[in-house]
Design a protein around this nucleic acid. Structure first.
Lengths: 236, 236
DNA sequence: GAGGCTAGTGACAGCCGCTGACAATTGACA
DNA sequence: TGTCAATTGTCAGCGGCTGTCACTAGCCTC
């Protein structure tokens, strides 16, 4: 009953060219390097165009002309326009998931999640800088928040991520995701707060990492109060 | 910097033909009635086709052929394919918002939200039945959950709804949404839980209203436990 | 009840995202 | 160097969506 989607090229893993892997990374070879270059060029050109002219107003042809490849090639690297635009988001998401995985098992679920985000805020920067300037990433982030079509896909992806995290948490706690509601609920709550902070951050002036870290921390602290029976008129 | 979207036709209010409004509802007139009929026919045909053949595999031409109008006409009634598919969702959302508005102001935020959903689960049925058979609506709901493109847009809309609700809550409590984090957080938490329950409901067997009511209630009850420092291994 | 006004429709043309198919090119490797 | 396989370009075509314009049919006035 489910529609087949089969996302193209990008779906796979996200490269991390920086530190060579421990074992089998025997230098890519010319062909591979060329591919990387093309992909990066397409990515950069696309984001640059999107953020300057707007997402909808940029055609795939413009992107490919800027990189001087055929349109067909573009679609072999990326599943579509949306896919390029959200490329860095995926990178960030997988970073976060990895961070959660590495949290020591004794931490309480929300504690682990909290530390994982805060931590990944710090490290994600480098990973991105290897592909495009972070400043471009920032602009892209705001673009996503303000472009309905992109935001929609972004949110759907977030939900998928949440499901994955929920399973992780359930695993940590030795529970069955489908039997115990708590993992999914906890993650949903967490995800909800993350989205709110993300949105506010994107809308605000201060786009620094410190800003988002602080916003995240204080908003997470406010979950308890927000769920209180009666709100004292003293918010914070 | 924001992209212009200008959603077409449907964007406006959702009709509620049942009880005639208190004052100015002086019988639509032939032209208006014809329009309603065309819109309903398009909606019904679209949902029927979507749910039987799949969303992507249904073309707009097929829909318009079934109703015997030109393709152009379709796009004058609905902003696009997605728009028809999500038409009933919008109706449900506005119902929920209305329900929240009518909650007595002495109820605590989450209490009000909780009662509003449970209540609207009961009343939404009739409103829908006036346009299409509920059974078709159920099928459509599951379709949305299982069709990435539709789910994406649905989630974005949910976020918009959340923002609206957050402002409502803030209003009730006499707070400023932008100064106090609690309204948005509370709504985000609530929305997160709603999405989880909705998803599980759609995936499960029992598509009855009772099922979703119960699921909603118990999941909301588990928010507290899910946020607890240490999870006792006895969930529920 | 005739005629003017305007909302709603159909027909046509065209842009853009995206895909399949096939031929041409170019790195990899013996 | 020649063969094999991966990448790419070209071409053709579908489907969603929009602008334009002429035409039809309710509606309203005299």
């Amino acid at each position: 009953m489910t529609e087949t989607v089969d996302t193209a090229g990008t779906t796979g893993t996200v490269r991390a060219p920086g530190a060579a892997g421990t074992a089998g990374a025997p230098r890519p070879g010319l062909r591979e390097r060329k591919k990387q270059r093309t992909r990066d060029a397409l990515l950069r050109a696309a984001l640059e165009l999107f953020t300057t002219q707007g997402y909808e107003r940029t055609t795939v042809d413009e992107i490919t002309e800027a990189v001087d490849v055929s349109q067909r090639t573009f679609f072999r690297y990326f599943a579509g326009k949306e896919d390029v635009a959200l490329f860095l988001q995926r990178l960030a998401e997988s970073h976060f998931i990895a961070a959660v995985r590495e949290r020591p098992p004794h931490e309480a679920p929300l504690e682990a999640l909290r530390r994982a985000v805060l931590e990944s805020w710090d490290t994600i920067g480098e990973a991105i800088e290897e592909v495009v300037p972070i400043e471009l990433h920032m602009r892209t982030y705001r673009l996503i928040e303000s472009t309905p079509a992109l935001l929609a896909v972004h949110l759907r992806r977030s939900e998928e991520t949440e499901e994955e995290i929920a399973r992780l948490i359930a695993g940590r706690e030795g529970l069955d995701v489908d039997a115990d509601p708590r993992p999914r609920i906890a993650v949903a709550v967490f995800g909800g707060v993350m989205r709110v902070t993300g949105r506010l951050w994107g809308a605000g002036e201060d786009t620094s990492v410190e800003a988002i870290r602080e916003l995240t921390a204080t908003y997470l602290d406010h979950v308890g109060p927000a769920l209180a029976e009666k709100w004292g008129t003293a918010p914070r």
